[in-house]
Simulated scan of single mutants.
Amino acid sequence: MREIIVFESIVDQVALKRPEIAKDLRRDIALLSGGTLPTAFTLAAAPSLDKWLSIVGPGVIQLTGFVTSHPIRQNGLVVTSALCAIDCRFRWARTSSRYYRLLSPLHEAHRND
């Protein structure tokens, strides 16, 4: 079973719109596509996203949820940049701008069992 899902087609779209992040994104996607997972250090430094779910926009998938420890945004509800890769066990995601540590998905946060 694959450990991650990589959306390689989004990288070129992002590079056209945001060339300042393209180099890091291309490097990370190449590593992930080759089977190299993010390090514990990388994930420890990443903001966390809780009560999250995926949303589909025009030509892009994004995540939304409650973020903490984001380097730019205040703690609270956010919509991420384009989703580029996600761990199949939903422990982390790589968007076009950064990694996120994924906490409870919204559907699990509201379970009553």
Rank of each mutant, 00 (worst) to 15 (best):
M1Y: 12
M1H: 11
R2Q: 11
E3K: 10
I4M: 09
V6N: 04
F7N: 01
E8V: 01
E8T: 02
E8W: 02
E8N: 07
S9L: 12
S9C: 05
I10A: 10
I10S: 03
V11Q: 01
V11T: 05
D12Y: 00
D12P: 00
Q13R: 08
A15K: 06
A15V: 11
A15M: 05
K17H: 10
R18L: 13
R18N: 06
P19K: 10
E20Y: 11
E20W: 12
I21Y: 01
I21V: 15
I21S: 04
I21T: 07
A22H: 04
K23T: 15
L25K: 05
L25P: 00
R26S: 15
R26C: 06
R27E: 14
R27I: 15
D28R: 10
D28Q: 10
D28W: 04
I29V: 15
I29A: 06
A30C: 00
A30V: 02
A30K: 11
A30H: 01
A30F: 00
G34C: 01
G35K: 01
T36F: 07
L37Y: 03
P38L: 01
P38A: 04
T39G: 05
T39H: 01
T39Y: 03
A44D: 15
A45R: 11
A46W: 03
A46T: 05
A46V: 08
P47N: 10
P47C: 06
S48N: 14
S48A: 13
S48K: 09
L49M: 05
D50H: 09
K51F: 02
K51G: 05
K51D: 06
W52E: 07
W52I: 03
W52K: 02
L53Y: 07
I55G: 12
V56K: 13
V56C: 07
V56W: 08
V56R: 13
V56A: 08
G57Y: 09
G59C: 02
G59A: 11
V60K: 08
I61H: 07
Q62S: 12
T64Y: 07
F66H: 15
F66C: 08
V67P: 11
T68Y: 00
S69E: 15
S69I: 02
H70M: 05
R73V: 11
R73K: 15
Q74N: 13
Q74V: 12
G76T: 11
G76D: 11
L77K: 14
V79Q: 08
S81C: 07
S81D: 14
A82G: 08
A82K: 04
L83H: 04
C84W: 03
C84Y: 00
C84R: 02
D87G: 02
C88Y: 05
C88T: 09
R89H: 11
F90V: 12
F90W: 13
R91K: 12
R91M: 07
R91S: 13
W92F: 08
A93W: 00
A93Q: 00
T95V: 01
T95Y: 03
S96Y: 00
S97P: 04
S97K: 07
S97N: 09
R98A: 00
Y99S: 01
Y99R: 03
Y99E: 03
Y100A: 03
R101V: 10
R101F: 04
L102K: 00
L103N: 13
L106H: 14
E108K: 14
E108I: 13
H110I: 14
N112H: 14
D113C: 09
